[in-house]
Design a protein around this nucleic acid. Structure first.
Lengths: 358, 358
DNA sequence: ATGAAAGCGCTAACAA
DNA sequence: TTGTTAGCGCTTTCAT
């Protein structure tokens, strides 16, 4: 009765049930159970039902660990965020993206394994190497495409399936996800400002090694050129609020005739920080300075004045990315086609207004 | 030569190396390799070195999957966020906390498996059940303690080690992490306002089923009572910016003699949204209304006016939580003692000022 | 000090 | 249709 001898029989103590317990309870073999849970053929209806009942009763579901070891999927996707936590805290960009990814992963019973590494050189590479060596994930999602991104080669070498969120640089050998017509947003923003009479328009960009940053700056310049205008000052900043404040101070310190009357920022957080900095310097938005952000985060709705921004649906972008990953790993995983991506578009609110003549 | 017969020998194709490859290269047995990587005794120095070299050369590290199956750790901690993604996007609270957790997990080679589930009833429970049934994680971190939190019983039943971030309700049977002296923050904030001459002080709290919310409201009320004052209006809101805006509109709509001259909010995001809402209604902060937030997120530094808030070091709280989890799972994992937690303290900036006499 | 071998829970070939 | 069994990569007795 109180025996605990080896594999004698079924009365397990109280540990987690295994496939063997289910098989025993259903009175079938383990392989029968396996076939049922994996939807393989060659199982009679009554048997299937008995297995299902047993599994249900025992609250059993296959151990991902064992399945993974067996060579199949780990049912996890990795993501390495190489940003300082401070930046992460300021800019919800990532959070929204991750939420979108999750929304797609969850129904497929996939998890997201997150690694937030600092910006120390090598930290990111180490994280990917470990993910691969330990066979922890089926693939990784990359964000913030970089020019000549070293991660692509690394991942190829590591044989880790990867999907990039956003704009690839040249013919980068990694699957990427983005809406067509990326240039629409910045283009519309510039036109909007020009229509409002602005002639001296500044651009505050993120670090120059980021693809999207460079890409957008080029659109900015070419749109202006197409309108026969010359671009105002272009400042390279980081993505931080402090960076935006510093840039704003610099821009507004210029003599009035060279001072920009409008600024485009690389993200909403920077734009909002800039509005506040401007006000602190005695400039009123949008009367003295028009400001445009990027991303259309909820933030923009409740600041004062409400932020005019270039909207992209990051949540949906996350979804699409995860879906692409599924298609890459195993088309059977991609249940439903996610909603299509829309190009970024200008959301006009209150932070832009007519240029005030000097 | 071109054989691919079974376990004949070593010339693996190009797949990931296994412990056997390392053993072969080092000319030892697999168990020797295992002992070396696990720091077991009974290995001579030269052997250890040969193994290390071989592992290094092959860029091998143990498969977490196999280790986990073997019954040891999965080297992953789970976290289920039961918030709408919109709230997540607005309030970086979570992000900072997660960064802190990560900082502690990473050196121990632990990953964070994140599940963002919506607010549909049952979604959260399902997520935990799956985490447990699939044996995906060694333990879970819980946030946002709730009154009579059903998760504790669930997790106990699931035999899933859990650590709670923040204030437990009564004698909840879950390990929890928080700094001593939680009441210090709100208490100092109330005193600060009273010293500035405010007598009609409002409180806008989060949902009433949250422990920290109720806890803070009580401190608010008791501090005021201790000062011989009666609390102003207490509004129950959600944690959203919209909620804060609505609450502010309600508060400011009151006739002047009953209108609060200061408000405490449940978090920084709400406070900032409220400042903007007030301005939109023609009230200037802090002249007409003093505003205090909670958390001390970076946001508060660059809004205008700069936000007075109750600071708690969420990053460090995350670290401490992960450390506690390690201690719970296996004291050997807890490498260094994390820095001690400090009680929340008032950070006075620009959003609070003297009460303007009627 | 070192190695052989038995599983951990599962899947998939192969038998029956 | 059903069951038996050999591993997946690793750790851990138990021999040697």
């Amino acid at each position: 009765m109180t025996n605990q001898t080896s594999g004698t029989s079924r009365p397990r103590r109280s540990a987690k049930p295994t496939i063997a317990d289910v098989a025993a309870l259903a009175g079938v073999s383990v392989s029968a159970v396996s076939k049922v849970v994996n939807g393989r053929s060659g199982i009679s209806a009554p048997t299937r039902q008995r297995v299902l009942d047993a599994a249900d009763k025992l609250r059993w579901s296959p151990s991902v660990t064992a399945v993974a070891l067996r060579g199949a999927r780990t049912r996890a996707i990795g993501m390495v965020a190489g940003r300082s936590s401070d930046l992460l805290a300021t800019d919800p960009h990532f959070t929204v993206l991750i939420s979108g990814i999750e929304r797609e992963l969850a129904p497929a019973d996939y998890g997201l394994l997150l690694h937030i590494v600092g910006e120390e050189p090598g930290a990111e590479e180490r994280a990917y190497r470990r993910l691969a060596a330990e066979r922890r994930v089926d693939g990784v999602i990359l964000t913030e495409s970089r020019i000549d991104d070293p991660r692509f080669e690394l991942l190829r070498q590591l044989r880790l399936p990867a999907v990039l969120v956003g704009v690839p640089w040249q013919a980068d050998p990694v699957v990427s996800v983005q809406a067509a017509g990326q240039e629409a947003g910045v283009r519309a923003a510039v036109r909007h400002l020009v229509e409002l009479g602005h002639r001296e328009i500044a651009y505050v960009s993120g670090p120059e090694d980021r693809v999207h940053t460079v890409f957008r700056r080029r659109i900015f310049e070419s749109t202006l050129a197409g309108l026969g205008l010359r671009p105002g000052p272009v400042l390279i900043s980081d993505f931080s609020a402090q960076g935006a404040v510093a840039a704003t101070e610099e821009l507004l310190a210029a003599p009035a005739e060279r001072r920009p009357t409008a600024v485009l920022f690389a993200n909403d957080t920077m734009a909002v920080a800039a509005m506040n900095a401007a006000r602190r310097l005695g400039f009123e938005v949008p009367r003295d300075l028009s400001v445009i952000g990027y991303d259309d985060l909820p933030l923009g709705e409740w600041v004062y004045p409400r932020l005019t921004t270039i909207g992209q649906d990051l949540f949906r972008l996350g979804q699409a990315t995860a879906a692409k990953m599924f298609r890459l790993l195993d088309p059977a995983l991609a249940v439903a086609e996610p909603p299509p991506l829309r190009p970024p578009e200008l959301v006009v609110r209150e932070s832009t207004g007519p240029a005030t003549p000097l």
